[in-house]
Amino acid sequence: MNAHAHAHAHAAEMPHEDPGHHHIASFRSLFAVLVFLLIMTALTVFTAKYVHIGEIGNLVLALIIAVIKASFVCAIFMHLLHDKLLNSVVLLLCLSLVVCFIGFTAIDMTSRGALDPTREHFIGPPPVAEAEINAAIEKAAAEHGEHATEHAGEGFSEEFAPPDQPDKAAPEQTEHH
């Protein structure tokens, strides 16, 4: 009796010997997550197509929905919710480093001129080789037949039009944007 009780207490203290005791996700919870993910996919398509809150607004909204979807995949499909905390810590540490990586790069990209106006021109889109790209568009137009030829030369939105060479720009160019 005494020996049996001792053995029982000992067994309770012993760590598990194999993964047989691990949490088993229920079919209902897995299927619910799948349905939720599909609904969120439809939602992100809908918001991107029909809810216009500005370029940056739509970008942020799509990212928020993606983060919600990813959280459910990590928590339920990848079992982090019922897993050892260490695995979650590994993932979150990695993600925080990614946030530093992309975040600091974005701050640098957008604010270098604010710190030192003389260096602003070192960052930003590379200068456009207007002549080369116009030639490429005209070449493409020539290869694609007559229909394209009438549009050759108006291949740029106004931002890339050379301001000091109005003769090169197509007459309708100011209509775009």
């Binding site: 889109p125 456009v128 790209i133 490429a136 568009i137 070449k139 493409a140 137009a141 290869e143 694609h144 037949g145 229909h147 394209a148 009438e150 549009h151 050759a152 108006e154 291949g155 740029f156 939105s157 890339f160 775009h176």
Partner: peptide
Amino acid sequence: AYADHTGAYIANAS
């Protein structure tokens, strides 16, 4: 090749 052969899309350098 800059694809402006459809005519509906205005190509950007980017």
